[in-house]
Amino acid sequence: MTEPYPPRPRATRLYRIPEAGRIAGVCAGIADYFGLSTTGVRLVTVLAGVFFTLPVVFLYTCAAVFVPPRPRALYANPAEEAFWRGVRTEPAGTVRDLDRRFERLDRRLQALEAGVTSPAFKVARDIRNLG
């Protein structure tokens, strides 16, 4: 049985970014995933390559082959991209922000419920229905 829609790419996955990269976009993808500077990741990679040439070349080649490129439609808008970047780089802060949002929504819902179930609302509704 086939699914009606193709699966959506996961925003929390590591992707290469070939259009923003120098060689296959591995450093750009790592920088994006961890919320770091692309230049800093490239500098660390080059320095590590100076001291550990074979392992760095091997790992970089493996990443270039096995890490998929980032899909064009990964995020619907810039706000969604910022949200998922926050989830990857600071998950506790994201949970805290979501918790605050749900608390505010809960308070608004309680106020709405209190207003709708109050006797004054029922009287106003009855008066409105008379006319």
Results as ranks from 00 to 15, higher is better:
P4D: 05
P4A: 13
Y5E: 13
P6T: 10
P7E: 09
P7N: 03
T12D: 15
R13Q: 15
Y15R: 08
R16Y: 04
E19Q: 12
A20D: 14
R22V: 15
R22L: 13
A24Q: 05
G25C: 07
G25A: 07
V26F: 05
V26W: 01
I30P: 02
G35P: 02
G35L: 03
L36D: 10
L36Q: 11
T38D: 13
T39W: 04
T45C: 13
A48M: 08
G49A: 04
G49I: 09
V50E: 00
F52W: 08
F52P: 00
T53D: 04
T53V: 13
T53K: 06
L54P: 00
P55M: 11
L59E: 01
A64N: 08
F66D: 01
V67S: 02
V67M: 02
A76M: 03
A76G: 11
N77R: 02
P78E: 12
A79D: 13
A79G: 06
W84F: 15
R85K: 11
R85T: 14
T89F: 02
E90M: 03
A92Y: 02
A92I: 10
A92P: 00
R96S: 14
D97W: 09
L98G: 12
D99M: 09
R100L: 15
R101M: 12
R101C: 11
D106Q: 13
R108I: 11
L112F: 09
L112P: 00
S118R: 00
F121H: 13
A124H: 05
L130C: 03
G131P: 00
G131Q: 04
